[in-house]
Amino acid sequence: MRHIISMLLENEPGALSRVVGLFSQRNFNIETLNVAPTDDPTLSRLTVTTHGDERIIEQITKHLNRLIDVVKLVDLTEGAHIERELMLVKVKAQGSARDEVKRTADIFRAQIVDVTPSVYTVQITGDANKMDAFLQAVTPLGVLEVARTGVSGIARGDKVLSL
C-alpha cells in the first residue's frame, strides 16, 4: 500500500542525507520526497511517499524515529488527510493543439503560467492521481518537460504535527 510519511527534521546539515541514506541502506523504496523549512527556523518538514506492506511501513517509521535528527513523525495515510503536489508541464501548443491544451487545462483547473508561440507551460496542483490523469490527457499533444514537486500533505481536522 502507498503511504505518506511526514516528519519534522532538525534543520541541520546532513539531516536530509541521513533520511535518504536510511531508505537505500535498508532497501526501502522512496517514490517522492519533498522537503522545506517550516515556520520554526530550526525545523524542516520532510514528506516521503513510499510503498510497502504493514511490516515494512512499521520498520520504516521505527527506523526513521531512531534517527536523532527526526524530531516527530506521522504516517498521514493512517487518518483523513490532504495530499497535494504541484506540477509544471511544458506542452507543445501549435495549430489545433493550442486550443486543446487550453481546454484540457481548464477542465483540470490548471493554469497556463508561461506562453510562447509554440509552447504553453501549465501549472497544476492536486493529488498524485490528478497529476497522472492530466499528463495522460496531454501526452498525445506533445509533452516537452515535466517538473513535479513530490507530495506534501497534512492531516485533516484538529490534528497537528508540531512540537
Binding site: 511490516r55 512499521e58 520498520q59 521505527k62 527506523h63 524515529n65 531512531r66
Partner: peptide, 11 residues
Amino acid sequence: VDPSSISKTVH
C-alpha cells in the same frame, strides 16, 4: 530498548 529491533525479522 530499541523499538526498531522488535518485529524486524520475527513478528
